[in-house]
């Protein structure tokens, strides 16, 4: 690994392959680990159907309950901003779409790069603010362990390296691009072993919550 190009070639070659293997195997294992556990049969006569209520909760939990919003507006709004910003940066930035198109053949329209740039800046700032909130809010500080800070770090790193690469603030460019790809690979590798898994399991969690409440006739 003598030059930045060698580094880039490694991260987008073997590095990417390793990350992909860990990411995919990890996620599939985690999901099956959860799902295969199953549920005991429920003999209580249902008041409502599980399916509709479960699916509704899947959607409705995206919006905060009013009282929680009033009590923790920062967590809610900050959470929205950075999640949306992250997804815009990830999926609407044209080079990313190109990458996805080149690897799996799916494509969709992107948005102007300078707009993504602004979104990314806001996302980074919000993530930093979220970190401060995590370190200062009594509940979040109490709950947080090394994993919470690790996942924060591996989430913000691709944003920062992407921002730096886009603005060419790391020299030479192959190094910038390589660091960006590497940071994404770190994210992919860390993903299945941490709370980042919520990106997949929250579907299951919301569904169970909604279904179990729906069975009792409550829309949770």
């Amino acid at each position: 690994m003598s030059t930045s190009v060698d580094f880039l070639l490694w991260v987008r070659g073997p590095g990417f392959d390793i990350a992909l293997v860990v990411f995919l195997i990890g996620i599939v294992i985690r999901l099956l680990e959860v799902l295969i556990l199953g549920r005991k049969p429920d003999f209580a006569e249902p008041r409502g159907a599980e399916l509709g209520a479960g699916l509704r909760t899947l959607v409705t939990r995206t919006l905060p309950e009013q009282g929680s919003f009033r009590r923790s507006p920062f967590t809610v709004v900050g959470g929205y901003i950075w999640h949306i910003g992250f997804f815009i940066s990830l999926f609407l930035f044209i080079p990313h779409i190109e990458l996805i198109n080149a690897t799996i053949g799916l494509s969709w329209p992107g948005i102007a790069s300078n707009l993504v740039d602004a979104v990314a800046a806001v996302t980074i700032v919000t993530l930093v603010a979220m970190l401060f909130s995590r370190m200062s809010h009594p509940v979040k500080r109490y709950l947080s362990g090394p994993e919470d800070y690790l996942t924060w770090l591996v989430t913000i790193l691709p944003m920062i390296t992407g921002y730096l690469a886009y603005h060419r603030m790391i020299d030479p460019y192959p190094l910038a691009l390589g660091l960006h790809i590497l940071s994404v690979e770190i994210l992919m590798v860390v993903f299945p072993f941490t709370k980042l898994m919520h990106a997949f399991t929250f579907f299951i969690a919301r569904w169970y919550n909604g279904a179990m409440a729906g069975r009792r006739g409550v829309q949770s």
């Binding site: 399991t201 929250f202 919550n209 909604g210």
Partner: peptide, 9 residues
């Protein structure tokens, strides 16, 4: 259980 954003009961 009603407010958890990821849906935890």
């Amino acid at each position: 259980s009603m407010v958890c954003p990821v849906g935890n009961d």
